[in-house]
Simulated scan of single mutants.
Amino acid sequence: MNMTRVESIQFEELDETSATGEKPMVKRDVDALGHVAVQLDVVVGNAVSTIGELFQMAEGQVLKLDRGLDELLELRLNGKTFARGQLVASGDHFGIKIVELA
């Protein structure tokens, strides 16, 4: 029988230091996994539409999403939600402030 050893990951409580990225949230040596490529998606919301409606869309038209302005965004790693956060400005770019780990 093949056996796989599974180790738990210890997460630290988020504080001001970890929110700025100065301390890692995971206490673990991840050097062995550092080269593994993953897909990270930030989901703002979803919309359902027909092909006909999409083809009729015009520049400047608004597509309504299923989430409110105050709702958290989802961070998905390879399709699975692992955290939620708030959209923030980071200089001239958008950023995500992590507020919840799933």
Rank of each mutant, 00 (worst) to 15 (best):
R28T: 01
N46Y: 14
E53R: 11
M1K: 05
V6P: 02
G34P: 00
L40H: 05
R28E: 04
V38H: 10
L54V: 12
V36I: 15
V48P: 03
I98T: 12
A19Q: 02
A19Y: 11
L72N: 10
G68N: 04
L54E: 09
D29K: 14
F94L: 14
I51C: 06
D29A: 08
R67Y: 08
L63Y: 03
M25L: 15
E74Y: 03
E12Q: 02
A102G: 08
R28M: 12
M25K: 01
N2C: 03
K27A: 11
P24S: 09
N2F: 06
E13G: 04
F82Q: 05
H35A: 11
Q56D: 07
G68R: 04
G52E: 12
N2G: 04
R76E: 02
D15L: 01
I9H: 10
F94Y: 15
Q56P: 02
D41M: 12
P24H: 06
E53D: 13
L69S: 14
K23E: 13
E71W: 07
S49D: 11
G45K: 10
R5K: 13
R76C: 03
D41C: 12
Q86W: 00
V48E: 11
D29L: 12
E16V: 07
K97E: 15
M25H: 11
E16R: 03
G34M: 12
K64T: 14
T17A: 00
N46V: 14
L14Q: 01
K97S: 13
E22M: 07
E71V: 12
I51G: 13
F11K: 00
V6K: 05
T50I: 08
L75D: 01
I96F: 01
T17I: 03
E100L: 05
M57S: 05
E7V: 10
E71I: 14
L87E: 03
N2A: 10
G34H: 05
V43R: 05
D70M: 08
F55H: 07
M57G: 02
N2K: 07
K80A: 12
V38I: 15
E74D: 14
V43E: 08
M3D: 10
R28S: 11
R76D: 02
L14E: 00
L101V: 15
R84C: 01
E74L: 06
A47R: 09
V42H: 11
Q61E: 11
F55D: 04
I9W: 13
I51K: 08
N2S: 08
T81F: 07
E7D: 03
S49H: 09
I96L: 10
E59Y: 00
L101Q: 05
T50Q: 05
L75M: 10
T17N: 01
G68T: 13
A83K: 02
Q56E: 11
Q61S: 08
N78D: 05
A83G: 06
I9T: 02
I9E: 03
E13Q: 12
G60T: 00
G91R: 13
V48R: 13
R76I: 00
S49R: 09
